[in-house]
Amino acid sequence: MATEFDPVADSSGIRSQPTTTTAFGREWNLTRLWYGFVGTAGFLAVWWAGGREVPSYLLPTPGEVAGALWAELVSGELLVHLGESLLHYIPGVAVGIVAGGLLGIGMGWSLVIDAALTPVVRVLRPIPPLAWIVFAIIWLGLGHTGAAFIVFIGAFWITFYNAYEGVESTSRDLIEVATTLGVDSNRRLLWRVVIPDALPGILTGVRTSVGQCWMMVIAAELFGAPGVGYEIITSANNLAMARSIAYMLVISVVFLLSDWAVRRVRSYLLDWQQ
């Protein structure tokens, strides 16, 4: 599963012009940059024109949002709330990826585990992570632990699925080659062939988890867990829409940063593919 932030790979239209690659892995050139600038300016102009016509509690102007963002940054509140979000996001994603990856590899590899767990997995996997919020509340309360639990479920199933697919579709041919070269245990086969062969799939799962789980974080926080999402909803309740949008932009920025970081790790680990 790819996200909408994949680097552009087609060569039609203005994209076919000579390019240089930036740190963000995108193709850039002056024409593209110019069009991007025009598009952004147009968007802001429309927003500004709209915001000027209606009261700020319906739609604040870009300037008001920028002001609110600056105020949060200077007061240090932004970092505090972002820190709160990260406090359940990071453990939830990390544990979810590891647990989901392990179960996916186990089920993809072992026919016994696959047969035993498939019915349970089939039933549980379609349940949206947010549906578990009732249990998160009852069992753990809606603090960091409860929110981390929701994030965990999201990351778990996404990574599980990608790891399972990756392992299940391991090249039979490469397994055969490995056995002719002296690999004679399941453990060695997993380590030397199956996991490396499934790694692209597993890392796609990791990348998708890292992105999707920001949604879980915000959703859990809208229910009351502390963090950026909580600030979005409380600001809106107070009709401080500029502050609300400021925190929405924070989510966007951390999403882009985390996706970029995962992509870097991914291209480092998969340099044999490029």
């Binding site: 090249s171 041919d173 080659v177 002719t180 002296g182 062939v193 490396p196 790694l199 998969l270």
Partner: peptide, 21 residues
């Protein structure tokens, strides 16, 4: 009774491990 490295095998489609140099 099974594969053994004493019988080295070379395949038409190479089957190199793509993630290894």
């Amino acid at each position: 009774q099974g594969p053994d490295p004493n019988r080295g095998t070379v395949f038409q489609a190479y089957h190199l491990f793509p993630w290894l140099t």
